[in-house]
Design a protein around this nucleic acid. Structure first.
Lengths: 337, 337
DNA sequence: TTGTAAGCGTTATCAC
DNA sequence: GTGATAACGCTTACAA
């Protein structure tokens, strides 16, 4: 394989100049530059990433560790992230840990070993050793999809609790009094936890009971959403509103409602978070909380690139969310039939 | 940051021995190994990936370029791929090109520059410069989700044409005579093309007409699926069976059918490929073609690891597909109402 | 089984 | 603006 030395020889310059021509062309005279570029083309020279990384101590690689790829919201934000980084000559290394924070730590270690200039994480809940690991190596990182309430960590995300509160408040406003929630597993998942708390606090503040028995925690799968709906509908009296912790759970719940012959939203209101594009196929009158997923990725990329380049960055970026209300979600006049 | 030399010094051995202890422990005496490991732990030593790659000419990184991450089928197979590689100490670099083969080539170049030991691609259609680029650098690659009919390229996948043929044949067997197809864009997409051809050939062989006007090509989006259904239903007589090129198109078509008040599958049979888990929520009686997505990823990982290690590999692995028939898909007795 | 030493292909610090 | 030259941290013959 051709090396920089070959290019330099062909162009009649030293390797040093050839190197500069590629990484800092403004330091090289126009004519020299042209010769070097011609040589590069002629030889089909491709820089050796590892050698470059070793000498410059920069890998031009950024890592992203997401809970799962099997969900449109992370797929979208990750794609935006990749896109932006790619445009800036950076490569994105993506890995998923399937909601296992120990796996996340392991992955982070392997990424650090392999060399990354920055890292994007999802949420604020992590193994206690993760962030110190990055700090020790001065690797910039940013937390996404959530806001760090301690104010100590850079983050780009939403106030999941406020979003949940708004959703619950809206349902209460439309007249619902008997609620249930199909939440994600809150342990080690700040987004799920904040959403649950937002609902609980809002209803409590309005004097609406949401006993623990009406809140079920389920993994983020369609099957769990289905099963979750059965679980919360077993209570007496039946809830008129079921709030689901994310889109997958809501889809499962909607499917189960159909199977059970329940008319959504006339008999039962089912609401969710995140990406409900699929759900809208099913239930055009669904009410959901939407987050600008692509923007998260784009902002995270910009933030990391700035930080890597030593440019000033915002310590925290809070993004807006939006409640989409389709059709009525009022409870049936007399509770459930 | 601690380097191997520090570890060696603390353990009272040479850097060479320390290096061997980490990468080929079987070559080092038990006692020495223990001392070195203790030193590693004590110092919190983490190997320097770039230096390692430069010296060994192996990056322990594998690349995967997929059309899109925003689809459960690729998300699943990619996750399986990552999982397997990770277990073997490899890192996976994932990138998506959004069905743009020139973008795919650019990404491949950047991955090659950054250093990869192997590459997984989707499909057999690629820019003509892509595979030669890999060959020139002796980078192992494997094509997935399709079979190379030329027999010259290693591939792990399905016979998309046969799958489409089987689906079309089944529908014809149940009595359908007026077909339509909402295909993906076949240009630069072998999977889409083979599926379309499979349908066309099968129907032709049975003397069933499928004029070009009854076949529409659409991008893989829900909206396009909706619009595609309107387009094919505008024909006279209306088709009784609509075959969709993938899951996303089928979902869109199903949604539109619902919007239009069409009873699927009693009035109209809509069928699709790939991952129809979501669709089954919508239309429990949908007939679909299923592919073992996770297995693709796992097999690709194993293949690449074998190939990288110089072990013998199969030049071609054909995986089975499965038609899932839920409920009847027979046409209405008298064509369309 | 372990040590010595020569690279691996760049970048970066100096002079010139 | 350009050219020597010394790193960068590790692997790997080859020797011992």
């Amino acid at each position: 394989m051709k090396k920089l030395e070959d290019v330099a020889r062909l162009a009649g310059v030293s390797p040093a100049t050839a190197s500069r021509a590629l990484s800092r062309p403004e330091l090289v005279r126009e004519a020299t530059l042209a010769r070097i570029r011609a040589a590069v083309d002629e030889l089909g020279y491709v820089p050796h990433g590892a050698a470059r990384a070793l000498a410059s101590n920069r890998t031009r690689t950024v890592g992203a560790i997401v809970p799962t790829l099997d969900n449109a919201i992370f797929a979208n934000s990750t794609h935006a992230l990749q896109q932006r980084l790619y445009e800036s000559g950076y490569t994105l290394v993506i890995a998923s840990h399937e909601y296992d924070l120990t796996a996340e730590l392991d992955i982070a270690r392997s990424l650090v070993a392999r060399g990354i200039d920055g890292l994007a994480l999802v949420g604020v809940d992590h193994d206690a050793r993760l962030l110190p690991l990055l700090d020790a190596r001065a690797i910039p990182y940013v937390l996404t999809w959530a806001l760090d309430r301690s104010g100590r960590r850079p983050c780009i995300g939403f106030d999941n609790r406020a979003a949940a509160a708004q959703l619950a408040g809206y349902l209460a406003d439309t007249g619902h009094r008997v609620f249930a929630m199909i939440s994600g597993i809150v342990r080690h998942n700040d987004r799920a936890r904040e959403r649950m708390e937002g609902v609980q606090q809002t209803l409590a503040a309005r004097g609406i009971a949401l006993p623990a028995t009406r809140v079920v925690e389920r993994p983020f799968t369609l099957a769990a959403g289905r099963e979750g709906l059965r679980a919360v509908l077993a209570a007496v009296p039946m809830p008129t509103a079921v709030i689901c912790g994310n889109d997958v759970l809501a889809l499962g719940a909607l499917a189960e409602a159909r199977t059970m012959g329940i008319d959504v939203p006339r008999q039962l209101s089912i609401t969710g978070f995140d990406d409900m594009e699929m759900a809208s196929l099913n239930a055009p009158r669904l009410t959901t909380m939407h987050f600008p997923k692509a923007e998260i990725g784009a902002l995270a990329a910009a933030w990391l690139l700035d930080r890597i380049a030593g440019r000033p960055v915002a310590p925290r970026q809070e993004l807006p969310f939006e409640m989409m209300i389709r059709g009525t979600t009022a409870p049936p006049p007399s509770g459930n039939p």
